[in-house]
């Protein structure tokens, strides 16, 4: 990111001089800094609203209930793990919390799951197939409601900010399945080093 940041600004100045747009470029710099503050201030409302509701779901145990539905599927995907491994419940909780847009709450479960997976492995610093599968699921970013995106659209006055939920859900669930299949294929053909 450091490189991209410096690169974008310096290239902008060079191109601006070349095309005689230096004043527009400098104006854009100051105007967009004000815009950035406006965006983050207007984000507060929708973020507060969503995190408020999600906190209720957390306190009432709805997320645990949700993860119980996921568990049987996980037993099929992680077929290399012993059926009674403690990793299953943490993976289920992590995926469920992420699905609801609770990435902060999901991280501790995810780290716990990684520790459980490490106990099943005999190599200290090498990732196992189960770890790669878990992170493939995690990095594909499966989510039911993209709360932050809706917040940005709503704060900019969209007519119907929730209309992206279904298209985004179709993409996120397909990518999720794609990542799982890809991880399975790699697990089979990846040569151990």
């Amino acid at each position: 990111m450091n490189f991209i940041f410096v690169f974008l600004i310096l290239i902008s100045f060079i191109v601006a001089i070349y095309r005689g747009r230096l004043d527009e470029t400098v104006n854009a710099m100051f105007e967009s800094s004000i815009l950035a503050v406006k965006v983050s201030i207007s984000l507060i409302g929708v973020m507060a609203l969503w995190l408020g509701f999600i906190k209720i779901a957390q306190k009432s145990g709805l997320i645990e209930l949700f993860s119980k539905f996921v568990s049987p599927v996980l037993k099929i995907i992680f077929n290399e793990l012993p059926k009674n491994s403690p990793a299953f419940s943490n993976i289920a909780l992590n995926i469920s919390a992420n699905a609801l847009g609770l990435s902060n709450a999901a991280t501790p479960f995810g780290i716990k799951a990684m520790k459980d997976l490490k106990l099943e492995s005999n190599k200290k610093d090498t990732a196992t197939n189960s770890m790669c599968m878990f992170l493939a699921m995690n990095t594909s970013g499966f989510q039911l409601v993209p709360a932050t995106v809706i917040a940005i659209l709503a704060s900019c006055g969209a007519d119907n900010p929730t209309e992206i939920i279904i298209p985004a859900f179709i993409v996120t669930s397909t990518t999720f399945i794609f990542a799982i299949i890809l991880a399975k294929i790699f697990a089979k053909f990846w040569k151990e080093v």
Partner: peptide
């Protein structure tokens, strides 16, 4: 946002 806005305003 400043780096992207400059990138756009400069014509890059």
């Amino acid at each position: 946002m400043i780096s992207i806005a400059m990138f756009r305003a400069s014509g890059s």
